[in-house]
Design a protein around this nucleic acid. Structure first.
Lengths: 342, 342
DNA sequence: CTGAAAGCGCTTACAG
DNA sequence: CTGAAAGCGCTTACAG
């Protein structure tokens, strides 16, 4: 019942040429193999007419390449990851690659299982927003000469491509911006996760506070807690400390923070200035609009996929070998109403 | 450099059995083929020790099955679709299937291209939240005996499994709930899209309004407009009509609506009652919390995947043939503060 | 109870 | 310029 797919051998018979010749034409080796123009035309005409597509399983089995890229992110419902995923997918497609997704929700076991899964699927390359505890697994991939690009988070002592933003400097600048706008007691609300990108953000905050000779106010929230509990914790923190500005280390913490502030009936920015790390559709809609440290998603995505493609092409050449490197991309501080002069 | 994957033939040599026997054991046909216990134990021990996984490309090439399901949704950043996707993926995994995603963003051309793409990838089954204009493409899949389950939207005259909620009745009930809580002039804000699930929602609203002998207030918003424009349009609609309650046909319209209401400085529910179709994390956080028509995501996901698996198993049997049917799943009206007695 | 052999649909050295 | 043949790693009739 199922429509039988036509094979290269059947086309060969019909066109009275060999499968070899067809394969050459299909893979752009017509010139190289000096296939006659007449034959090329004949084959191309037939393929266009019938819409013949080679069986990808047979190709992968034969060549050992899957034309598949494994993309591991934290959470597809986070707009940052959703957008990066979409942009990477588009660019990958243009280059003949397909994407296999997965979300880890910061679960180390899930991440480890997923890497195994990618391996079992013979992906040609890996793009990974790492969780804690998978350093060894990534180390193993590299040792086996797999093509890997990390992003959003990186490991300091791993010889691997990584694409990150300048977390440290971004937070430093945000605190200075608060200060320039008259805010004095500037707090930092972050998660209790020990991933490098989070500790970098904290370090940037601390550095600025030291520079300003101010008192630091840091609250680390347990990410596992329920929404309600997180909101409560932020409320309590804000009432117990004499702060007049808050830098939130992630967009979701800021969403919860806005709710806490609303419940406390604090006015933004009069009672409390706000900046969030990472944009969110709400921050533009909110009243007043919320200032953010914006990550340049397109540049990040382009950089990731370009690096990976470079490595993937290495493999074909055998001669060249792209060096692995850490690429730091600058953020932009979008100054909306929530952090303007009191 | 790349770690060479071990093959079934090499294992066969090492274990001094035939590849056939290993294949039987791996595919659970040991009993059926009366492979001796001793040999089964030997093979299983080796497989567990080495973590051998058969090459999926070779399997697919040989069997003609990919163990892949194509999942087409509107937008992965919409929490409804994100959650459905995650639940379906989990259930599919348990049954040995992997998922290939794509988002259509309601673009007919993209949807058509994606169906082709799924075909080229030899997916065993299709789960589709249809856009307009792909009725023929789905019709063609069915004609070719592909396994298809539609969800969220359906086509009336297509003989295909579809899993939808009772859009009509849900909106009817929401309007009646407004009325029972003392709201009189109840508006419906929806999109200008003509998909069946949207027109069903409108019909439910109209039916209730007729039943209540009230005046209908309907505003259809162009979904292509910018966020700012949509908010403006809602503001204008609310000021120009004497309404005291609004039922929003989608969660995103309600998010924009809340912003419009905020700008108008209307109090909820005193000045305006609110109900949204489909939940959203904000609606629980909002002050006051927003009543919603909740779609039972887990039941929906389970139903979709169960139906598809049933069809997929049909194919193996050859004898049974699961009948296609439309399954309507009831929603629940979550009564939060925003629609309570004025 | 077990194994040798064919074949899924490609690509690629190799021969001419 | 073109084609016959081997082989990627499986599964499955078939033979014993």
């Amino acid at each position: 019942l199922k429509r039988k797919k036509i094979s290269i051998v059947e086309i060969a018979k019909k066109l009275k040429v060999s499968p070899t010749t067809i394969s050459f034409v299909l893979n752009g080796k017509a010139k190289e193999q000096r296939v006659s123009d007449k034959v090329v035309k004949k084959i191309e005409a037939y393929v266009n007419k019938t819409g013949y597509k080679p069986n990808a399983f047979a190709q992968s089995l034969r060549t050992g390449k899957s034309k598949l890229i494994g993309l591991m992110i934290e959470d597809i419902s986070n707009p940052f990851f959703a957008n990066v995923a979409r942009l990477i997918e588009d660019k990958a497609y243009e280059n003949g690659y397909r994407i296999m997704y997965c979300s880890t929700h910061n679960d180390t076991d899930k991440a480890k299982a997923q890497i195994k899964m990618f391996r079992d699927c013979h992906v040609d390359g890996y793009i990974i927003a790492a969780t804690n505890g998978i350093e060894e697994d990534i180390q193993r991939l590299i040792a086996e000469n797999e093509k890997v690009v990390l992003f959003d988070r990186h490991f300091d002592d791993l010889k691997v491509d990584s694409v990150v933003v300048n977390n440290d400097e971004s937070c430093y600048n945000a605190v200075i911006h608060f200060s320039n706008n008259g805010f004095k007691n500037i707090a930092f609300i972050t998660t209790d996760q020990t991933q490098l990108q989070m500790t970098d953000r904290l370090n940037g905050y601390k550095k600025a506070i030291r520079k300003l000779k101010r008192k630091p106010f840091v609250r680390k929230i347990n990410y596992q807690h329920t929404t309600e509990k997180i909101i409560d914790e932020i409320k309590i923190f804000l009432t117990e400390h004499p702060v007049d500005a808050v830098l939130f280390a992630t967009n979701y913490l800021a969403v919860y923070g806005l709710e806490a502030i609303h419940k406390l009936k604090y006015k933004i920015p009069k009672d409390l200035g706000i900046i969030a790390f990472d944009d969110h559709v709400l921050f533009q809609l909110y009243n007043p609009p919320v200032s953010v440290i914006e990550q340049p998603i397109e540049l990040i995505s382009d950089t990731i996929i370009s690096r990976l493609l470079a490595h993937l092409n290495d493999y074909d050449d055998g001669t060249t070998k792209t060096e692995s490197t850490k690429i730091e991309i600058p953020t932009a501080l979008i100054e909306r109403k929530s952090s303007q002069t009191k």
